[in-house]
Write a protein that binds this DNA or RNA. Structure first.
Length: 199
DNA sequence: TGAAAGATTACCT
DNA sequence: GGTAATCTTTCAG
């Protein structure tokens, strides 16, 4: 068991892009009936204020209301009818911005993740936003929960050393697609996307 | 009420 | 590297 504690809300930067960068190297902890599954965040994307690609861009709806709760809450939605996406809300209540968690390096509960994913290969357990949600069994029931408190799903910090962080364009979007708002750990095999996207 | 797009993944060649 | 699968949400009419 590694030494870790919940992330404190006042530690989260006000600015969404800064939050996306800050979350690299932090932990996502999932508490399940079978035990704890956790992973280190190796890839994020920021969906900032005034960003046409952001779900909060056109105001609050029944789906995206969690984005407007203020920093450190979970926004979970289903993409393409197949994959759940985990986001961390950012900035002040009512703004509607957030950070997508795109990939994790599995740490604890790897056997649980293998069962949830139905595959063996470590590298593919949480390499991609839909994959990590499946590995940690994240769905809409976790939408809106506070990630700065221990519970079914929370964010943690440990004594991990700072990573070498790369920055590039976001994956899989069409609007505002050229903005460099994706952050990743250089050299990590657990980052999604092709080699050319991760120099 | 209908249609279109979507922050993806898995499987094929 | 290309494409089908799959279904919810949102916006138009």
């Amino acid at each position: 068991m590694t030494i870790r504690r919940p992330l404190v809300r006042s530690e989260l930067p006000d600015d969404t892009a800064s939050l996306a960068r800050t979350l690299i190297g932090k932990l996502v902890v999932r508490e399940l009936p079978e035990g704890i599954a956790s992973g280190r965040i190796v890839e994020t994307e920021a969906y900032v204020a005034g960003d046409a690609a952001g779900h909060g861009y056109r105001g609050m709806t029944s789906r995206n209301r969690s984005l407007f709760l203020g920093p450190g809450h979970a926004y979970v939605y289903l993409a393409y009818g197949i994959s759940y996406m985990l986001n961390v809300s950012s900035e002040m209540p009512g703004i509607g911005t957030g950070v997508l968690i795109r990939a994790l390096e599995p740490l604890e509960g790897i056997a649980i993740m293998r069962l949830n994913r139905g595959i063996e290969r470590l590298r593919d357990l949480a390499r991609g936003p839909g994959k990590l949600a499946q590995a940690l069994r994240i769905d809409r029931s976790l939408d809106g929960i506070d990630l700065c408190r221990e519970g079914p799903l929370w964010l943690a910090i440990d004594d991990h050393q700072a990573d070498d962080i790369g920055q590039g364009i976001r994956i899989g979007i069409t609007k505002d697609a050229d903005r460099p708002l994706r952050f990743y750990v250089r050299g990590s095999p657990f980052v999604s996307g092709t080699r050319s996207l991760n120099p």
